[in-house]
Design a protein around this nucleic acid. Structure first.
Lengths: 234, 234
DNA sequence: AGAATAGTGTCTGTGAGACATTATAAG
DNA sequence: CTTATAATGTCTCACAGACACTATTCT
């Protein structure tokens, strides 16, 4: 396509990919889905799953498709949002490639991530990720995704995206404790989340634990914002 | 450049632009910089200023360059952050063009925006923008930028980016009132912002108003986050 | 009974909203 | 003096943090 721009002034056309930072909570740890690169560049290193934007496809649609390919999730019970776009020249040694990073929060998957493509995808606890062994600028992307997820817990209801319905208030609290890395007062936590409008919907059912008192079970409500917010400090 | 992807599966290379939502406060109103399109598509309509990403240029650098071309500002005393990327197929009738939108907050400029390029750029109060007369998907971008700016005032110190240094606490309060659209209690506002660590640095100087008591003048501090936050509601 | 987890009640300090009061300038 | 704006002080209610206490299941 020809545009009214002097030749050589702009970069010309550019390859565009979507990369995903998919978080889940497994074994009481925050984990991220990483794939092992099967070809150059960065052969053998870990990378965020991702792929090219297809013809006629919105960016959101690309992200959803990639997520489905990697996890088998259908997009109904998950949180998926655009994070940021990374386009430094030189971030991909093959040429100018800009990538739109998405953040996805998914519940713990019983299936250990098959994925329709051949690449070996695996969950890695974020606190044991070797950031120096991540391909491209994925260390930067992962770090910014982490901070985004942590801060989002404060003033949105996305924490519930980590929980398999129905879930107890303790389940939800464990999400916060795992993502933030410190314990919360169970009593005050309960007061906050039950007080927030449309955050939790009681199901009437109760858990059947092997030990201890059964817990009331909830579903996600319709609220997107959490008011008043839950503070990390102070 | 050739990549290991089956032909026809991805969109091929794509044009990438950076568009800017530049806000300022003039005449006690929030205003946005718009340019009039001098060519098709959308000839004669208003659009956000923007342009192509150049070879070897980071996205941030492109945004800074465009901002400088439009306003003459040098990037030292302004706030510039990536907002979101818009890439729906069909958003540009000429073909696949994705745009990385940036949000800029600048102080009131004495120079009425010359701009090195020929396009007619002008400040328009956001509450008198005709969203139906904006080119491309710029109505969506502007709306999301507005909401971002409003929410950022709550928990960051960016409001001060609107103020020409040195400024008084009343100047700063007027920023909040204009952006949020409702009055704040002067006394409680002062208590909040003077209590926040490293938000305001006293200069020792005072304003010389034609009427009323002179106000103490401040410079921006180093803090980026505002704690505790200033709430819009409640 | 004892252990383990769920859930309730209560006290206290901080801070936001409301609003009264004082301070410093110009005419 | 009055007028206009800046700055300080005070009262009250709500809520977050801390923590004691009760409830319900299991072995």
């Amino acid at each position: 396509m020809i545009r009214n721009v002097a030749p050589g002034r702009h970069a010309g056309d550019v390859a565009v990919t979507v990369d995903l930072v998919i978080f889940t909570i497994r074994d009481d740890r925050l984990q991220v889905l990483l794939v092992e690169r099967g070809k150059e560049p960065f052969l053998g290193m870990s990378a965020l799953p991702g792929g090219y934007v297809r013809d006629g496809e919105t960016l959101d649609r690309t992200a959803l498709r990639e997520l489905n390919e990697e996890t088998g999730l259908d997009g109904r019970r998950l949180h998926l949002e655009q994070l940021k776009t990374y386009g430094d020249p030189g971030r991909d040694p093959r040429g100018r490639v800009i990538t739109v990073a998405y953040l996805a929060l998914v519940p713990d998957l019983s299936t250990p991530v098959a994925g329709t493509d051949a690449r070996a995808a695996q969950w890695v606890p974020v606190d044991s990720v070797d950031f120096d062994e991540l391909a491209f600028d994925h260390a930067v992307i992962l770090r910014e995704a982490l901070e985004r997820a942590r801060s989002q817990l404060e003033y949105t209801t996305i924490a519930a995206a980590f929980c398999t319905e129905p879930f107890s208030i303790s389940d939800l609290r464990r999400v916060y404790e795992v993502v933030w890395g410190f314990p919360l007062d169970p009593s005050n936590f309960r007061r906050k989340v039950t007080g927030a409008e449309d955050f939790l919907v009681p199901t009437g059912r109760r858990s059947t634990p092997e030990i201890g008192r059964p817990a009331a079970l909830y579903r996600r409500g319709t609220a997107q914002l959490l008011f008043p917010p839950l503070m990390r400090s102070g």
